[in-house]
């Protein structure tokens, strides 16, 4: 609404009756940072609300602007300035969660909230209420997770391989994430993650070949019964059951963890270079030679 090229040409009025509001209440963290809704912080709303409040005050100096907040988080570069300016701009900040919001017949709103700083119950008649609603993963994110077999974080956003060290990479080679796909972000942060993702992609494409680990799973087709177990446990979606009802490993996707192997009831899978019989020989070797338990062996009758 405040945007000069927005639907109202930058003028503020109520869509219902065309009245310019005298009192605007902004409510922060609606559906964010709550165990009943999104447990995470939506990252951008505090700064945006402060910026909007300041713009409102510039445009309509007579207007009463009130912000209800839990904490104000102005983390990114330059955002603290909004906070400082808002204090000078005569905007009322009330720390507290809004308990009730009602509307009367004239479309006037009543906001009731407990102020946790003064310990009082506040009641404000507002002409317009602006909610800072939480940011959710888009429907497309869900689809991408399903179709591409990507990882999903606890909040429903895409998950990266490693939040600190590999923040753009997904478990699938050649698929990178940036911006709000991985969680709430503001514009500068989204741009920098997009650049990082692009450079990751460029680095991959700059080589003519992809270097692939040789440690990958291998199926013994004569043993596989097509039970789908390995398919379910593989995090990289590297195994699928083919038309002949036999498991098949996608050699480019397999990372060689070996989780499928120990889950296969038919023992039909083996990991190249880390084969079962190699481990067995290793264990046996340690048991009979390395640890010098041969004297003790006499009292151990293993069956």
């Amino acid at each position: 609404m405040l945007s000069p090229i927005g639907p109202t040409g930058g003028h503020i009025y109520r869509v219902s009756d065309g009245k310019t509001p005298k009192t605007v209440v902004m409510i922060q963290c609606v559906g964010s940072r709550s165990l009943k809704a999104n447990p995470y912080c939506s990252f951008v709303c505090c700064s945006v609300a402060l910026k909007n409040a300041q713009l409102l005050k510039q445009e309509y100096p007579e207007m009463d602007v009130i912000i209800y907040y839990i904490d104000i988080r102005t983390t990114d570069k330059g955002n603290e300035e909004y906070y400082r300016k808002i204090r000078e701009a005569d905007v009322r900040m009330i720390r507290g969660k809004v308990g009730e919001l009602t509307e009367d017949d004239d479309h006037n709103l009543m906001v009731r909230a407990y102020s946790s700083l003064t310990g009082e119950l506040t009641k404000i008649k507002a002409d317009m209420v602006v909610l800072s609603t939480g940011m959710n993963p888009s429907k497309g994110t869900m689809e991408a997770i399903e179709v591409l077999g990507l990882g999903k974080g606890p909040n429903g956003f895409l998950s990266e391989i490693h939040g600190c060290l590999k923040p753009q990479e997904t478990k699938n080679i050649g698929i990178y994430i940036c911006g709000c796909a991985a969680g709430p972000k503001n514009i500068p942060y989204s741009v920098s993650t997009a650049l990082a993702a692009a450079s990751k992609a460029a680095a991959l494409l700059s080589h003519k070949t992809i270097i692939q680990e040789l440690i990958i799973a291998e199926i013994d087709e004569t043993l596989c019964s097509g039970c789908h177990r390995c398919e379910k446990v593989c995090e990289y979606k590297a195994i699928s059951i083919n038309d002949n009802k036999i498991a098949q490993v996608d050699e480019l996707k397999c990372k060689g963890c070996g989780v499928c192997i120990s889950s296969c009831p038919a023992r039909a899978i083996d990991l190249k270079y880390y084969r079962d019989r190699q481990f067995e020989a290793e264990i046996k070797g340690i048991g009979t030679g390395e640890l010098d338990i041969s004297q003790k062996k006499s009292i151990k009758i293993a069956n």
Binding site: S262, L271, D276, I283, K284, I286, T288, I293, A302, N303
Partner: peptide, 14 residues
């Protein structure tokens, strides 16, 4: 990757 059989094998081997 650790198969229960490895553990049993280890216990068996001493």
């Amino acid at each position: 990757r650790v198969d229960p059989s490895f553990v049993l094998k280890a216990l068996k081997e001493g």
